[in-house]
Write a protein that binds this DNA or RNA. Sequence first.
RNA 1: GUGGAUGUAGCUCAAUGGUAGAGCCCUGGAUUGUGGUUCCAGUUGUUGCGGGUUCGAUCCCCGUCAUCCACCCCA
Length: 422
Amino acid sequence: MLKKPPGIEDIFPDAMEKWDHVTGTARDVFRTYNYKELIIPVMEYTEVFARGLGDETDIVSKEMFTFEDRGGRSLTLRPEGTASVVRAYVENGEYNRLASCKLFYCGPMFRAERPQKGRLRQFNQFGAEFFGSENPYHDAEVIGMMDAISRRLALAPYAVLVNSIGCPDCRVPYTEALKSFYTSHSARLCEDCARRLEKNPLRLLDCKNESCRALRAEAPVITAFICGACRDHHDRVKGHLSQAGVSFTEDPFLVRGLDYYTRTTFEFVTERLGGQNAFAAGGRYDGLVEQFGGKKTPAVGFAAGIERILLMLGDQRAPERRLDVYIVHSGGDALALAARTAAALRERGIAADLDPDAGGFKSQFKKADRERARLCVIVGEDELREGTRSIKDMGSGEQASVPADAAADRIGAMLKGSASLP
RNA sequence: GUGGAUGUAGCUCAAUGGUAGAGCCCUGGAUUGUGGUUCCAGUUGUUGCGGGUUCGAUCCCCGUCAUCCACCCCA
């Protein structure tokens, strides 16, 4: 049997109902904030991610699906959305001329990690990006948007962690302070952290190792190092969040795994994802557009993991989908009329189905039941002879016949609730 | 990349050193054109793959692959 590669999933119709519920809710909320959807490519030149996310990040250095095209150019399946959106924004002359713009996307991302609970190699995200202002209002709006989606999907309990990692200028002295603090306590660091100390000191704060965590409690805090402008920005983000009624927790140790963030960073976290804890995260990236060759354009955005949200939804039922009409027939000439009836219903936007090979009425009604059909239309010998169609309400079990040419209208009215069986 | 667990019917799982069962699902039936409940009957497996021990392995051992979980990292 042919199998799918590891960490990749098929999504069958029964799961689609919950899937649509999640993405539909996100789209609805995005629209209420005047964000507009765009579709970005699934692959980019490798450089887009290498430059965008940072060469030294784990995602770029060891988690990308990279291959060469026939011309020997290096392509990569996108591991996240922001770099692509920024590239598209900079490349599109019409959009980057706008004073500001609000975009959102939804689609698959790829990372060559070992799969586990809440972590796949092909997974889906929806995310939003705002371009064109460093006003802290927008930081709060983006966070508020994800909070609104979370509330609508009833994802509670979850927490919103917020921090500021300052601008590149004020991060330098902080990184130095962090380095010297950890260097003087290097004996208490785990192996991984010894490595982080050299490569990416900020990530020292993220370690889950007990002794490192204990050490962190005494570590220098970023809030003591950020410059006046960054502090003011951060305070105003928090002010807007409070005003918007978003309950959040300040976490001075929240750092992110991508190099492009400046100032605001945030994460939506929950206990219910096994080893993972974040189901959405983002922040501000004021330097990225310029780095991609555009004019200096401050921006802020986030991305959310759809499969992780699905996990949080658990057994919560999404609204179930039912078939409007199942058509039961007795074969032969009746099949032709049954097909015509189905066509007439579909013209009216009514979902109808039938089985041309159907045996007895019994098995056809069983199928109707399995499809959770609201109504059945019966086209059999009696109906053929009398020029009628019988309509059965599968909920009540009641049945009546109507003239053949009035059947489709009658059914349409019944499904809308404006008519009942005669 | 590292560590742990698990691989038996389509699904969820039993069982025993002597070539496997249950429930669900599916199909058919319970007086010939009527479902959801009930009852009856029936179909399905090279027990993940390869090797070893043994008279004999699904069960024991080794390898391999796959899946899951955790670390790393991240949505």
